[in-house]
Nucleic acid binder design. Structure first.
Ligand SMILES: [Zn+2]
Ligand SMILES: [Zn+2]
Ligand SMILES: [Zn+2]
Ligand SMILES: [Zn+2]
Lengths: 152, 152
DNA sequence: CATAATATGATATAAAGTATCATCTATGTT
DNA sequence: AACATAGATGATACTTTATATCATATTATG
């Protein structure tokens, strides 16, 4: 199970996946689209009796982000669970996110060498040396392309 | 003068560059780094006697953005004046922004064909069809690279 | 158990952004 | 000039988002 894998992943870093953290991560994993901190909060408070304060959500999201269990989308200030919690995938190279304008779904993809090179090159021409790159690209996913094509 | 060019540019779209709008644009043009809406507000209210309400700043920033006189950086929720107000440059292709982590300066550059192609290709492999692309790339500008190298 | 380190709760406050309606100003018409 | 209209700004209130701070609880460790 995904949560179990996340727990192991945390343990490897000497961190704990507590109940609250598990709850937040779970909410994100069950969402098909990115969620804001307050959206996460509301969803958490649907399921539990003891209401979680906003402060906790922010803290926990920071924690989960550090553990690479969730990613933060800076263009929208929202969070998504990592697509590679269960698998052995590591975030070696840059990670990009494809955001569907139709259904708000997100796809996490690794940067291709070509894309990284081309961007590095582009920056180079004005003397910039790139450090981090994480792109959030807007577009239309396969599903939405098909539905649109059939007039749905 | 830049403001004059901006005025002409507005007029071509049947819009007016009013005093308030000129004030906001002027603040952004004088800044070497991107400014948040409230930073713009504060700077505006330094120079004038009649305080501008926050609402106006948001409205005016929206207006200036539509006129392509300023650009909004979605990763930081800040604004920069367009680098091409005076020249005849048009925003034909995608525009990217290089953000220096050292001095917070911004460089507005046109997308290269190679970069656009590589990203499009990358998205293609998972069935995504990209729509807009405006990237905000972090890095180190020439000036900061040099100062760092000399231990300054 | 005692202690320290982590994690969470609770409360208050700050910052950012929006809604709404009133007022003013430019522009064009009679 | 008087009027009507659209566009722009002022003013106020409010919502949403995010942070600061200190108290309490939980967990690990000797
Ligand atoms: Zn990931
Ligand atoms: Zn879709
Ligand atoms: Zn521009
Ligand atoms: Zn620099």
């Amino acid at each position: 199970m995904l949560l179990r894998a996340a727990e192991v992943s945390c343990a490897e870093n000497g961190a704990r996946l507590t109940e609250r953290r598990r709850q937040v991560l779970s909410v994100l994993m069950q969402s098909s689209s990115p969620l804001s901190a307050y959206e996460v909060l509301d969803l958490c408070n649907l399921s539990t009796t003891s209401a979680m304060p906003a402060m906790s959500v922010y803290r926990i999201l920071d924690f989960l982000e550090q553990q690479l269990l969730v990613h933060r989308l800076s263009t929208s200030n929202k969070y998504v669970s990592c697509a590679h919690i269960a698998c052995d995938h590591k975030h070696f190279q840059a990670t990009h996110f494809l955001l569907c304008e139709g259904c708000s779904s997100v796809e996490e993809v690794d940067a291709t060498q070509e894309a990284s090179d081309a961007l590095e090159q582009m920056a180079e021409t004005v003397g910039f040396k790139l450090t981090t790159q994480q792109f959030e690209l807007s577009g239309i996913c396969t599903t939405c392309q098909n539905s649109a094509g059939r007039g749905l």
